[in-house]
Amino acid sequence: MTDIQERPPQADAEKPQPAAAGRPPGGVGREHTLQIRKRRRKEALIAHLFLAPWFVGLIAITSIPLLASLYLSFTDYHLIQDWGWVGFENYRTMFTEDPRFLKALSNTTIYVVVSVPLQLAFALALALILDRGVRGLPIYRSIYYLPSLLGSSVAIAILWRKVFGADGLFNEFLGFFGYEGTSWVGDPSTALGTLVVLNVWTFGSPMVIFLAGLRQIPPSYYEAASIDGAGKMRQFWSITLPLLTPIIFFNLVLQLIGAFQSFTQAYVVSGGNGSPADSTLFYTMYVYQKGFNSFQMGYASAMAWVLVLIIAVLTAVNFMMSKYWVFYSDK
């Protein structure tokens, strides 16, 4: 650690340098290039050593089921009956003959578009409040994290009815204002909304990541900024936010992937069938139904790969956009 303390980071208080000037331009001499090449080769070797466990896992454990499911997506693989190759039939069917697929896709899209930004905004806001040296911070942090611990529990099916059921807490609350609500989980026009709230309710995970990210920002930046007379707001906009962008980006990418795949909560709350009237039928729930209720694992695999495509495209777009707003201190 001693060598670190000797070299504190040269922070620019006004604005952290967005992109430090890269490496010095490569040497001119031949010897120098050779040296660089050798160094590069050595670095690549070391990198592969660091990645060795991951490579083994990828080849031996991850890739086999992955490729199997890709292959199966071109078959009418049935868990019990005979099956065979069908080409693109599954893919054609889902877009042309399967209204439930489209319904599941639209439910999930609405869910993602509404709940991800809400959850992230919520998580970030609370992380910022809690980061400001509120006394009893660990207690609040723990309390706010508790719902996330409970979120995937089997008990949540009953508990959510206690909040959004006909006799639930939410209706009691509305009762104060003289409004008599019915069952929010039972009404197809509001059931999806309660799942959005459920997702926002479990904002603990992104909040924790934000909190950790906030603590990753060197305090010297703030000290320097204070000395330069930058106010709190100024510090937030020019230090906290830019330095937090990798973490915001991370949360965004993963919550997006997670929300597209979200299964457990909807499954438990709706009793596994997307009730009422398919209004909470999520994409992965439909994949699951096709695979494990109808045993049509080939079709389910095809749907899963369409989901992979959707998520991959969105993630790629996300990464491309990130060039414009995410700031890495290692550049």
Binding site: L58, I64, P65, Y288, G291, A300, A304, I311, T315
Partner: peptide, 21 residues
């Protein structure tokens, strides 16, 4: 990209191949 890609496939369709493995 491959690493990120492995997060994207829902568990349910790899369950049977995984079980066999």
């Amino acid at each position: 990209a491959v690493m990120l890609g492995t997060i994207m496939l829902p568990l349910h369709v790899v369950l049977v191949p995984q079980y066999i493995l």
